[in-house]
């Protein structure tokens, strides 16, 4: 088990190296010259060349990559071309809203989606099942920004129950913090809920056919316990997997959701950085997202061994 842990953690290194190379080269290949952008419209080719040299953009690709990677390993993500602030500082300022949004969405989605999927599987073919699965299809097909504006219109503008926009730091109270997150989390969570509910239902349908479920019933175990203890624990591996994979969905959705609800988070930072071609910021944010995703998958691999005793590394 310990050997596995070490190997699994070490495996993160090559993955991140490839991600790094990809992030670095993608931006080198992208159109648009940051030197020309900084120099402005009136600059002469010589000025641009000078700025390019000062940014180090005139040196070979691999040399630049090496230096870049070395700096990142020392916790230096560079300086924003636009604001001249260190990228780590800029990310630090934006982390809390995004982490809050994703965590609230994650918890809310799992708490809603898993029971829905379980009940749909239990009542397969009945009305409840059809309603849940119909809603799931809807959740998949309606775009995030449509849901976001719709929810904001109904619950914020018309009913006035919740704030339509903005973010309140958690330091100013859990209540206001949560109130600002409800609509964004609902918006962001819809696709995620649909995904988890569908996978839960499909897996549970299979598990409920198994002999050990019949054994549990024959032992006099109550229906709820049969479903949520005996069956769900057996269905947990695919469900946890899809929850992990879905984190990517949340990261992508956060960018749009933060824009719709004017939340000053990493998603907004990413969009702004792309619009300004602020290379160091883009690289920093993408690296952070990738690293988070890799870590989530690592955590899930470890979680498997807790869920299913047959999985041993």
């Amino acid at each position: 088990m310990f050997g596995f842990l070490v190997r699994r953690v070490l495996a993160v290194i090559p993955v991140m190296a490839v991600v790094g190379l990809f992030v670095f080269s993608l931006l080198s290949l992208a159109p648009g010259d940051p030197a020309a952008l900084i120099a402005g419209d009136q600059a002469s080719p010589a000025d641009i060349e000078r700025i390019r040299a000062s940014l180090g953009l005139d040196r070979p690709f691999l040399v630049r990559f090496g230096e870049w990677a070395w700096r990142i390993l020392h916790g230096d993500l560079g300086t924003s071309i636009f604001t001249n602030l260190p990228v780590t500082t800029m990310i630090g300022q934006r982390v809390q809203p995004t982490v809050s949004l994703m965590l609230v969405t994650l918890i809310f989605a799992v708490l809603v989606a898993v029971p829905l999927g379980v009940v749909a599987a239990w009542k397969a073919g009945r009305l409840v099942d059809r309603l849940v699965m119909g809603a799931a299809v809807l959740g998949f097909s309606v775009p995030v920004f449509v849901v976001g504006y719709l929810l904001a219109y109904v619950f914020a503008l018309e009913l006035g129950w919740l704030p339509a926009q903005g973010y309140t730091p958690i330091e100013q109270g859990v209540g206001p913090w949560l109130a600002n997150l409800v609509l964004p989390a609902l918006t962001l969570g819809l696709v995620y809920i649909a995904l988890i509910a569908r996978v839960t239902r499909a897996t549970m349908l299979d598990v409920l056919q198994q002999d050990y479920v019949r054994t549990a019933r024959a032992k006099g175990v109550a229906q709820g316990s049969v479903l949520f203890v005996h069956a769900l624990k057996n269905a947990a591996v695919p469900i946890v997997t899809v929850i992990g994979i879905g984190i990517a969905l949340l990261i992508g959705g956060a960018v749009v959701t933060e824009t719709v609800f004017a939340i000053p988070g990493l998603g907004r930072l990413t969009v702004d950085a792309i619009l300004r071609r602020d290379y160091p910021v883009i690289q920093g944010v993408v690296l952070l997202f990738s690293f988070t995703y890799v870590l989530v998958n690592l955590a899930i691999d470890l979680l498997y061994t807790l869920i299913d005793p047959r999985i041993r590394y």
Binding site: Y212, R214, T215, R217, G220, R310
Partner: peptide
């Protein structure tokens, strides 16, 4: 069930819950 009347099933390989 499981108290006054209990059952032994045919398939011992699949009748026990693998994760408990």
């Amino acid at each position: 069930r499981g108290n006054a009347i209990s059952v032994i099933f045919q398939e011992p390989m699949t009748s026990l819950n693998p994760v408990l």
